[in-house]
């Protein structure tokens, strides 16, 4: 047991309860339904932009891509244009593979020797659950757009349809929600039970996972068990995006406000946490630069002037010995 995940778990439970009690008991629906979402969104946008601006302010003095393949040198040697890009299209491909397929994480493969034979086994669990987690999250977010748009665009309807393709349960089950919940849980269990990952994990690692699990959990409960008033939820959401906020007359239910509040906490938390990796990955200098600094000049804006030891100083130091050894000198 360690305090890092206990604190995080407690924090998420308390946050959920506050919203539930506050909206259901204290009748603070305007606070949890209107004020906090706007504040959270504001914090998110300003915080995120501020963070990215902070990164962008610092220059990239050197070209330091991690080269993970053959360089482009002689014409007849096949270069690895994606893993060691020498031009912008290659960099774009490399970044696309990183962002959409988590390519580097996928490299986590290993070779196993059984007897005399080499057999290849990929330890793909981390990669697999990371992919499932991120993509199901994406689908969930896109799917939720139907609450914020009227009429609902065709694309979102399609995604909605595909996401519930198995047509089980009533209301029909979205796979994305279930997968998100499951994948986040696996990633959490990994942190708790794999010793070396446990050793490096801190509250900042557990809290977002618990938060997302909490969001998925409240979402699932609300849709399949508590069956909150969807029409009311949409009314509230539309009010928010059209800047004519209002709380619908019919009660939507405390669980809805708990869900919404956790989402708001997540939004506001992103700029101050490791979740900024969603922005950082685009700016990582070992990935987003071409390995072409021998072919094209890269400029360092702060290129410090430094004291060097000039040839003249060198010759002054050793002139006699150089002459004696028959080495040419500038000044006899």
């Amino acid at each position: 047991m360690n305090v890092h995940y206990l604190y995080s778990l407690l924090a998420v439970i308390i946050l959920g309860l506050i919203a539930y009690a506050g909206s259901e008991g204290a009748g603070l629906t305007w606070l949890f339904g209107l004020v906090i979402p706007y504040v959270a969104l504001l914090i998110f946008i300003v915080g995120f932009a501020n963070r990215v601006w902070g990164w962008a302010k610092s220059p990239v003095p050197f070209r330091i891509p991690t080269t993970a393949g053959q360089q482009k040198s002689l014409d007849w040697i096949k270069s690895s244009s994606i893993d060691n890009p020498s031009s912008t299209p290659g960099v774009i491909m490399r970044m696309a593979l990183e962002i959409f397929l988590f390519r580097s994480l996928f490299r986590n493969s290993r070779v196993e020797i059984s007897g005399d034979r080499l057999s290849y086994k990929w330890v793909i669990w981390l990669w697999l659950f990371a992919i499932l987690f991120h993509y199901s999250f994406l689908v969930v977010v896109i799917r939720h757009m139907r609450f914020f748009l009227e009429p609902i665009p065709f694309v979102i309807l399609m995604i909605d349809k595909v996401d519930s393709i198995f047509q089980v349960g009533s209301p029909v089950v979205y796979q994305s929600g279930v997968v998100l919940f499951a994948a986040a849980t696996v990633l959490l269990l990994r942190r708790v039970f794999v010793p070396k990952v446990n050793y490096i994990s801190r509250a900042a690692d557990y809290f977002p996972l618990f938060l997302i699990i909490g969001i998925a959990f409240t979402g699932i409960v609300m849709r399949y068990f508590a069956k909150v008033d969807v029409v009311g939820a949409k009314e509230l959401a539309m009010g928010l995006v059209t800047f004519s906020p209002g709380i619908p007359d019919a009660s939507i239910g405390g669980i809805f406000y708990a869900h919404l509040f956790l989402v708001c906490v997540l939004l506001a938390y992103i700029p101050f946490s490791k979740l900024m990796h969603m922005g950082g990955i685009f700016l990582s200098p070992t990935r987003n630069l071409a390995n072409n600094s021998r072919a094209k000049r890269h400029v360092n804006p702060w290129n410090n002037p430094v004291k060097v030891h000039t040839y003249e100083e060198y010759e002054d130091d050793f002139r006699d010995k150089m002459i004696e050894a028959g080495l040419p000198v500038e000044k006899e």
Binding site: G54, W55, P59, S104, K274
Partner: peptide
């Protein structure tokens, strides 16, 4: 931090996934 974007990014983006550990 003012001179190297790499340092800022590397300070901020690690999620401690443990892929590098071994």
């Amino acid at each position: 931090l003012g001179k190297y974007r790499s340092l800022k990014i590397f300070m901020d983006t690690c999620v401690r996934c443990g892929a590098c550990a071994d």
